[in-house]
Design a protein around this nucleic acid. Structure first.
Length: 818
RNA sequence: GCCCGGGUGGCGGAAUGCAGACGCAUCGCUCUUAAAAAGCGAGGGCCUCACGGCCAUGUGGGUUCGAGUCCCACCCCGGGCACCA
C-alpha cells in the first residue's frame, strides 16, 4: 500500500498504456466456453485525414466508457477500431504534395493509432482493419459481385458533375456555387454510364423496419423515414391526342384530377423528342435541354420553377376527355415518380405559379366551406380540405377523405391504379476516381459485363497510376490494368475502371470485425452469429442517413442470401454532439480549429475525456470556447481528480471502517451512477462522483475511514478516467489486477435508501417549511407534522384550512380558503 | 414550405411535487517573496441589520392543490429534407 501521492497524469498515463497492452487487457474472447454474455460496442471507425480531432475526443470518450462499463458489468466485450481509408481527400492531398495517396493515408493511420493508444482506448487492436487494404477490399468486391449476381448492381446512364478544365468528375461536395472547388471553372452536367445498387427494391422493408429500431434516436428514425419518402396515391395514364402515345403520371391527389388544365414532362422524359417533333417545338425544347445540360446538378434547384416550354401537343384527361396543353419543364424531375405530372393549378402551389406565368386556366375543384375560391382572384393554391366540385360523379364529396374512393373508382373504370412512390433513389456507387476499391467487372465485346471470378479477387488497385485529374477514371490510363481477357471466352476485354463509393466499404465493416483475419469469406458466420447485431453504436449524426441506411440495406441483402440471421445491424444507436468553437463548427478556413492531442500531452488523457463527458449531455454540442479554461490554468476536472487522489490515498491509509453516513452516500451513488451510465448521462454521473468525493473528504476530515467509498469511487471512475482509476486501484488501493477487470460495484438497497428525507411543507403551493422525517412516515403523521410546523402556521395566519394534499413522505400542500 | 429538437444565474448545465445539484468564472480570505498549485467562505434579482417576504425557468394564456416539467398560441435559436407531383 503506497503513500498518498500527487496526481501527475502525464507521468502515470503512458506507463499504463504499455502495461495494458502487455497484459492483453482488452482482447475480446472467442472462447466458446466463456460464460459471459457478449457485448459488441462499436464506435464509427475513423477517417484518417490527419491526427485525431476534437470530434474524436467526444465520440470515443463516450464509446470507450460504454465498452469499459459493459466489461465491468460482466460482459465479454468486442470493442474494435479500424480505418475508413479510401476516399477523395487522400487523392487531393497526394496531388497537392506530389506523393502517393497511400503514403498520406498510412502516415495518418499511424498517427491516429498512436494517439488512440495515448488516450488509452480499450480497443482490441488485434482486430484492426483498414478498408484500403487488399485483404479488406477483396471482400468489398466480393459483396459487389453478390449484388451483381442478384441483379442488385446494375449500370445505367446518369448525370455527373463535370469540370471541363480538370477533365474530371466531381462529387457534389466538390462543386462550390456551381464551380469546381479546385480551379473555379463552371461545372457542367455530363452523362456517364455508372454503377448503381438497387436499394429501391428494399425501400419498403427499410421503412417498415425503422419501427423496430426503438433504441435509436427519434430524429434519426425521422430522417430515415423522410429520406425513404413513401407517398401513396394513384397512377393514371394520359394519352397524347396528336400521337396516341401514353404517358403515365403519379399523383397523391387523384381527387383533383378534374382540375387538370395542363400537363408537364421532365426534360429527360423519353417522349420529349418525339412530342416536340410532333408539336413543332423541337428547336425550343432542344434549347432548354442544352441549357439544362450546362447546369451543374447542384444548382438545378435554383432554377425558376415557372420556366417551361409548350410542346404543341395535348394530353387527354381520362376522367373527362379534356385536352390540355403539354409542356416540358425543369421543375419536373425524371428521377421521381414517372417524370410527368398533371398540372392542377388551383390546388398545387407550383402548378399555380406555372399556370399564372403561362396564362393557363385555373379550375377550382375543391371548395373550402364558407370561403369559396375564385380562379380570377386566387393568389395561391388551395391545398387543404373542402368539397369536390366540377368533378363529375364526385361532386359534393369531402376531400381529402375522398381520395381512397376516387382511386377505387379509377381502378374500376380502368383509368388508373393505386400506386406507391418512394423518394429514395438507387445508390450510385461509381466513382471515376483512383483511391477506392476497383469494381470487379470485365467488359467483354462478346459477353458484356462479366464478373471477375471470386478466386481472382482482389482486383488490386495498381500502385503506379497517374491519378492526377484528366480524362475519365485514372485507372483507364493504366494499360496493364485495363487490358485483360474475358473470364468467359478468353478474348480481349477491358476492366471496369471505376472505383466504389467509400460508403460501400463502410456498409459492412462491422461484420468484418467479428473475424477480421478470415481469408476464405468476408466473415466467419459463427463469429458474426456470436457478436452481431451491434449492441451499442456510437457516432456522429452526420451519418444518420446514408451510412446507416446503406448498412441496413447490405444487412438485409446478406439476410436474403442466408449469410446472416438478423435483418438490422445495430440495436442501439447514440449520436454524440459536435465540438464547436464560439458557436461555429471548427474549420481550417475559419482558423478556429483546436488540436486536442497537444492538450492531451499537457493535461493528460483522462482530463480530456472528463472535460468532454462532463460538459453536458452526450448528444449536445460542446462549445470549446465556453468550457476551455484560461490558458495558464488547469481544467476543473483535473483539480477534481487531484482531490480524488488525495482522498483515496488518505482512505487507503486508514484502518477505520467507513462511517454509516458515508456508506449510505456510497451506495446511493452506486445506484445513481449505474443508472446514469446505462443512459449515457455521463455528465450527471460525474457530478454524483464529485459529490461522493466531497462526502469522503468530510468523513476523512472527521477522522473516519473511507475505504469502501474509495474503492467504489475508483471503480466508477474507471470507464471515464481509466488511467487515474487504474493508478488508484493498483498502486494506491493495492489491488493485484486491473480495475478494468473488476466487477462494477453493486449497491445494497438497504443502505441506498435514505434514512431521513425532507418533508416539504407548502401553503397554497409555496414552500413554507421543511421537516426532516423518516421515510416510512404515513399520511396522517405527515399531515399533522405539516399543520403543526412553524412555517405553515405563520403562512396560514389564521385563515381557514381547506384541502390538504399529502404525498408522504416528501410533500404536504395546505390549501387555504379566502 | 414541410418535419424534428431546444430556450433555466455571468457561463456549462442539474431538477417528473424543495428551481439553480455538480462544476467553471467572479469576489473575500489562508498559505506563498510573488505566481502557480492547494485550502476555506460568499453569491439569482428586489426589499430587509436580521428573521423573513416578494419576483423569477423566452412571451402570453390555460389545466392543476401544485407547472421549468402537461396543453394552446406566439417569439427566438439549432438541425434535417426541400420544385417529391
Amino acid at each position: 500500500m503506497a503513500a498518498v501521492r500527487r496526481y501527475e497524469p502525464t507521468e502515470l498515463e503512458p506507463a499504463w498504456v504499455q502495461r495494458w497492452e502487455d497484459e492483453g487487457l482488452y482482447r475480446a474472447s472467442e472462447d466458446p466456453n466463456d460464460p459471459r454474455p457478449r457485448f459488441y460496442a462499436l464506435d464509427m471507425f475513423s477517417y484518417p485525414s490527419g491526427d485525431l480531432h476534437m470530434g474524436h475526443m467526444e465520440a470515443f470518450s463516450g464509446g470507450d466508457a460504454v465498452a469499459r462499463f459493459a466489461a465491468m458489468r460482466g460482459h465479454n466485450v468486442l470493442h474494435p477500431i479500424g480505418w475508413d481509408a479510401f476516399g477523395l481527400p487522400a487523392e487531393n492531398a497526394a496531388i497537392k504534395r506530389g506523393t502517393h495517396p497511400d503514403e498520406w493515408t498510412y502516415a495518418n493511420i499511424a498517427q491516429q493509432a498512436a494517439s488512440f493508444r495515448r488516450l488509452g482506448m480499450s480497443f482490441d487492436w488485434t482486430r484492426q482493419l483498414n478498408t484500403c487494404d487488399p485483404e479488406y477490399y477483396r471482400w468489398t468486391q466480393w459483396l459487389f459481385l453478390r449484388l451483381f449476381e442478384r441483379g442488385l448492381a446494375y449500370r445505367k446512364t446518369a448525370a455527373a458533375n463535370w469540370c471541363p478544365n480538370d477533365q474530371t468528375v466531381l462529387a457534389n461536395e466538390q462543386v462550390i456555387n456551381g464551380a469546381c472547388e479546385r480551379c473555379g471553372t463552371a461545372v457542367v452536367r455530363r452523362d456517364l454510364t455508372q454503377w448503381f445498387f438497387k436499394i429501391t427494391d428494399y425501400a419498403q422493408r427499410l421503412l417498415d423496419d425503422v419501427d423496430t429500431l426503438v433504441d435509436w434516436p427519434e430524429r434519426v428514425l425521422t430522417m430515415q423515414r423522410n429520406w425513404i419518402g413513401r407517398s401513396e396515391g394513384a397512377s393514371v395514364d394520359f394519352e397524347i391526342a396528336e400521337t396516341g402515345d401514353t404517358v403515365e403520371v403519379f399523383t397523391t391527389r387523384p381527387d383533383t384530377l378534374w382540375g387538370v388544365t395542363f400537363f408537364v414532362l421532365a426534360l429527360e422524359h423519353p417522349l420529349v423528342a418525339t412530342l416536340a417533333q410532333a408539336g413543332g417545338s423541337a428547336e425550343e425544347a432542344g434549347r432548354m435541354l442544352d441549357e439544362l445540360r450546362s447546369t451543374p446538378l447542384t444548382s438545378r434547384e435554383q432554377a425558376d420553377s415557372r420556366e417551361g416550354v409548350r410542346l404543341g401537343v395535348h394530353a387527354v384527361n381520362p376522367v373527362n376527355g379534356e385536352k390540355v396543353p403539354v409542356f416540358v419543364a425543369p421543375y419536373v424531375l425524371m428521377e421521381y415518380g414517372t417524370g410527368a405530372v398533371m398540372g392542377v393549378p388551383a390546388h398545387d402551389q407550383r402548378d399555380f405559379e406555372f399556370a399564372r406565368h403561362h396564362g393557363l386556366p385555373i379550375r377550382v375543384v375543391i371548395q373550402p366551406e364558407g370561403e369559396p375560391r375564385d380562379p380570377d382572384t386566387m393568389t395561391e393554391a388551395h391545398d387543404h380540405e373542402g368539397s369536390m366540385v366540377n368533378s363529375g360523379p364526385f361532386d359534393g364529396t369531402r376531400s381529402p377523405e375522398s381520395i381512397a374512393t376516387v382511386i377505387e373508382w379509377l381502378d374500376e373504370q380502368g383509368i388508373g391504379t393505386p400506386a406507391v412512390t418512394y423518394r429514395l433513389r438507387d445508390w450510385l456507387i461509381s466513382r471515376q476516381r483512383y483511391w477506392g476499391a476497383p469494381i470487379p467487372i470485365i467488359h467483354c465485346p462478346e459477353h458484356g459485363e462479366v464478373a471477375v471470378p471470386d478466386d481472382q479477387l482482389p482486383v488490386e488497385l495498381p500502385h503506379d497510376v497517374d491519378f492526377r485529374p484528366g480524362g475519365e477514371s485514372p485507372l483507364a490510363r493504366h494499360e496493364a490494368f485495363v487490358n485483360v481477357s474475358c473470364p468467359t471466352c478468353g478474348e480481349a476485354a477491358t476492366r471496369d475502371t471505376d472505383t466504389m463509393d467509400t460508403f460501400v466499404d463502410s456498409s459492412w465493416y462491422f461484420l468484418r470485425y467479428c473475424s477480421p483475419r478470415e481469408d476464405t469469406a468476408p466473415f466467419d458466420r459463427d463469429a458474426v452469429e456470436r457478436w452481431m447485431p451491434v449492441d451499442q453504436y456510437v457516432g456522429g449524426v452526420e451519418h444518420a442517413i446514408l451510412h446507416l441506411l446503406y448498412s441496413r440495406f447490405v444487412t438485409k441483402v446478406l439476410f436474403d442470401m442466408g449469410m446472416v440471421t438478423f435483418t438490422e445491424p445495430m440495436l442501439r444507436l447514440m449520436n454524440q454532439g459536435q465540438v464547436i468553437y464560439d458557436g461555429a463548427s471548427m474549420s481550417k478556413s475559419k482558423g478556429n480549429v483546436v488540436e486536442p492531442m497537444p492538450l492531451v500531452e499537457s493535461w493528460g488523457a483522462d482530463t480530456m475525456r472528463l472535460m468532454m463527458l462532463f460538459a453536458g449531455p452526450f448528444e449536445d454540442d460542446i462549445d470549446w470556447k465556453l468550457i476551455a479554461p484560461d490558458p495558464h490554468r488547469r481544467p476543473g476536472v483535473t483539480s477534481w481528480l487531484s482531490r480524488v487522489f488525495a482522498a483515496v490515498g488518505e482512505a487507503a491509509e486508514r484502518d477505520a471502517a467507513d462511517p454509516d453516513e458515508l456508506r449510505r452516500a456510497t451506495h446511493r451513488t452506486i445506484q445513481g451512477v449505474t443508472d446514469d451510465m446505462e443512459r449515457f448521462r455521463f455528465n450527471v454521473a460525474i457530478s454524483k462522483l464529485q459529490v461522493l468525493t466531497n462526502e469522503m473528504r468530510s468523513a476523512l476530515d472527521a477522522g473516519g475511514g473511507a475505504r469502501e467509498a474509495a474503492s467504489a469511487l475508483t471503480q466508477m471512475l474507471a470507464p471515464m478516467a481509466p488511467f487515474a482509476a487504474e493508478e488508484l486501484w493498483r498502486e494506491v488501493l493495492g489491488n493485484d489486477t486491473s480495475v478494468h477487470l473488476s466487477s462494477w460495484p453493486v449497491f445494497d438497497p438497504d443502505l441506498a435508501r435514505r434514512e431521513r428525507v425532507t418533508l416539504v411543507v407548502q401553503v397554497d403551493g409555496k414552500v413554507r417549511d421543511r421537516i426532516e422525517v423518516e421515510p416510512e412516515l404515513d399520511e396522517d403523521a405527515c399531515r399533522d407534522l405539516a399543520l403543526a410546523s412553524e412555517g405553515a402556521r405563520r403562512a396560514v395566519a389564521g385563515r381557514e384550512v381547506g384541502r390538504v394534499v399529502v404525498r408522504p413522505p416528501r410533500l404536504v400542500n395546505i390549501v387555504t380558503r379566502g
